[in-house]
Design a binder for these strands. Structure first.
Lengths: 151, 151
DNA sequence: AGTAGATAGTTGCACATGCAAATACAAAGC
DNA sequence: GCTTTGTATTTGCATGTGCAACTATCTACT
């Protein structure tokens, strides 16, 4: 087996590792959020993204990018959250095709309540992942990435 | 904002980065595999896992772990591939609850045909990801992890 | 031997997702 | 002004997924 073949295998192994870590974290968050507030991970992602806009709106398309979802899935995701009274659609005046979404007071309240649970679960699952030799370097790189970005 | 809050935010940002990278890679592989052989990423994962056993069997449960799927989803995934003639179920003699799966000649052939396409797509998307400053350190860590594992 | 409890896999059902088509609106060209 | 082209969002439809319940088999205990 040559050097080129090695590189291919390294990439494949790296991708499997990434997928495993992603699945581990997502499953842990899913459990925590579902138990605490019947929220899925994407639903929490929406609340999180909207709350980070702090009083500002987000278009459906931005939401689709933030959640890595298709437009149709985004529509239905927003429908679900709107039906639960967690956010509202706001028609945009200057581009009447566009639709903004904004957290309601209830949505913000639920987010504030769930966030510590989410953060604790994330902390726990990352600690767990760091104990697995295969996953540890990737976990470490997540922090390094943030430092790079912030620094 | 205190040090603890910073750590929380670093972890959250790291998780978003990981999810973004995962989504990027999965979408790229999905496109490549679907175009080449109407295979989804999980379906390819099954062929890959089975081929790496090289002539040996895999239980449903092992397959479920390899694909990070539920038992029921694994059943239907195997059904799909069996219907396409890519693998066969083999009843296990010593534990008649257990079911082994094995690639057919056709399945192995398809895998051999698709693998280079998969590898090329993975190589390309990783190169693309490495150009994004936020993703680059994580991509680098994937290789580092493999190096660590391989010793 | 016989029963109780655990384990492997499958099925019914509800639901979230993506793709393609439809609708509504905006922007550009003539 | 009108048409053509492009963009934002929504809906119809098919499909993949998880959970819970079910069947079949194994294991342990008596």
């Amino acid at each position: 087996m040559g050097i080129a073949d090695d590189a291919v295998e390294v990439r494949a192994q790296g991708w499997r590792t990434l997928a495993a870590l992603h699945g581990l974290i997502e499953a842990a968050l899913e459990r925590a959020l579902s138990a605490e507030a019947k929220l899925s991970v994407v639903e929490y992602t929406v609340l999180d993204a909207l709350s980070r806009q702090d009083g500002w709106h987000m278009r459906m398309q931005q939401l689709a990018r933030a959640t890595a979802l298709s437009p149709s899935a985004t529509t239905r995701l927003v429908n679900r959250l709107e039906d639960r009274g967690l956010l509202t659609r706001i028609l945009c005046a200057d581009d009447r095709r566009g639709i903004y979404t904004e957290l309601t007071a209830q949505g913000r309240g639920l987010y504030e309540k769930v966030r510590p649970v989410h953060d604790a679960a994330l902390r726990a699952v990352l600690a767990e992942a760091e104990e697995q030799p295969e996953l540890a370097p990737v976990v470490a790189a997540l922090g390094a990435g943030a430092r790079t970005t912030a620094g």
